[in-house]
Every structure is written in structure tokens, then in C-alpha cells.
Design a protein around this nucleic acid. Structure first.
Lengths: 115, 115
DNA sequence: CCTATATTCAACTATATGGTTGAATATAAA
DNA sequence: TTTATATTCAACCATATAGTTGAATATAGG
């Protein structure tokens, strides 16, 4: 029963992972651990700047964090926020179950009293 | 180990649910069952046309289906596709676990042989 | 100090997105 | 058959997005 709180945050999060490049970046980071921006960019046929911007989107959504050491920025994945997606979905499923249950009660027992 | 297949489909799906209005529509549909376009639109401070377009986005992503009876279009939710999101995430998590495991082996045993 | 490297910032472009309004289409009802 | 209802289609607009290039900033190394 959270839902009213941070709908916008959830949208931001879902939008962040709705891009193939960004999902790919996340995967890289998850399997390699902290990685430098330049090294991340090396995997893509895309300018360093483009990757830098993608990283910023992920960062804003809380999916990666940054540790700057000297001139190098180490980027690290953080999967925590995605749990928000999971809980959104499980809430949706439970609403679904609830309706089916009500429907079923109505059909089998025909009891509309306790409504 | 699917992943190479329909990245684009997953993007489309995530993008579809990254909009608050569309998530709200999905929730409505899930709790009310099949609903007419006009009735859905009634809940929002937005033109019928805007809602019609949102529905089309959800439809394209496979999240709703449409049954046309006469001039009325009945829209119904279908949560099936969202399982793709769940499996994407669980794959990501397992990659994560795998790396941590390797890392742990390296630290505790110092065995780099079988790499 | 000078130069090379790592990264961001700023400005620009093309396309996508979310919304609008007005017309078109299809069906139902008087 | 005329009118009202349900919905989409088409054109338009403002803003967001994903990418580019070029300059700026910061740090490292000769």
C-alpha cells in the first residue's frame, strides 16, 4: 500500500532501464564490478560522451554510484532500486488476485452480502 | 541465457510501464477487469484521445488486449509480459552473485588456477 | 612547465513522446 | 434515416531523448 509516494521515482527508474545501452552498461558493471567510464565506453560503437550521459541517467535513478579517484571516475552498479520495480509488480499481481477471488466468490456462492 | 533475442521488446515493455498514466491504467484494468476506453478515460484529466494513445502503447507492448463488440472496445489487462522484466532482473542478480562468488573464492583460497 | 589522459559541459541536431484539437468511421438508437 | 455515442485517425505543438562535436576542467607524468 505504498504507491502514492514516489510514482515519479519509479517512472525515472523504469525509463532508465528501458534503454538497451543502459541495460547493457548495467550488465557490464554487474559482472565486472567497478569500472572506469572510458573502459565502459570501449564496448560501444558510440562516443564517450554518449556513454557519460547514459551513466548519468543511471546514476540519477540510483542504479549506479560513482567514486572519483584522481581523474578517474569508478562506476559501480547498485541493484537495490530495482526492487521497487519488483514490489510494484507484486502489488499489481495481488490486486489481480484479489479481483479474481471476489469474482470467484460471487460465482460459486452468490454471496454479495459482505461487500 | 536468452538475452540476445528480444532486447527491443524488453525496451518497449519497460518504456510502456515507465509512464505514470499507463501504470495507472494498468492498475485500473487489473482491479476492475475489462473496461471500455471511455470509462477508462473518465478517471483522468486528459482527453479521450490521449488515453486512446496510451492504450495503444500498452497494447503494442502486449500488456493489454482489446475485444471489440459493436462500437465498444473492451480493454483487458495482461500481466504476462511483465515476467520478462522479472526474468531480466533475476538474470542480472545471478550474474552479480556469480561475480561475488568468484571474488570470494579468490580472496579466501587464493586459487587463480581454474580461471 | 608541458603534454597526455579522463571526464564533463555546452551547444546543436534529429527523432520520439505526450499532449492537444478537429475530422472521420462505425455502430446504436430514436 | 437522422442523430447520438464510441473510438480512431491525422495533423499539429512543445518538450524530452539520444546522439554528435568541440571546448573546458582536472589530474598525472615526463
Amino acid at each position: 500500500m505504498v504507491e502514492y509516494k514516489s510514482e515519479e521515482k519509479l517512472s525515472e527508474l523504469l525509463k532508465a532501464v528501458s534503454d538497451t545501452t543502459r541495460r547493457s552498461l548495467l550488465t557490464q558493471l554487474v559482472q565486472q564490478g567497478p569500472t572506469r567510464v572510458t573502459d565502459l565506453a570501449g564496448y560501444y560503437a558510440m562516443s564517450l560522451n554518449a556513454i557519460s550521459k547514459h551513466i548519468k541517467v543511471l546514476e540519477k535513478a540510483g542504479l549506479v554510484s560513482r567514486k572519483t579517484i584522481g581523474r578517474v571516475h569508478w562506476i559501480e552498479a547498485n541493484l537495490q532500486p530495482i526492487k521497487e520495480v519488483e514490489s510494484w509488480f507484486s502489488e499489481l499481481k495481488s490486486i489481480w488476485e484479489l479481483r479474481l477471488e471476489k469474482l470467484n466468490n460471487l460465482l460459486t456462492k452468490g454471496e454479495t452480502k459482505n461487500d
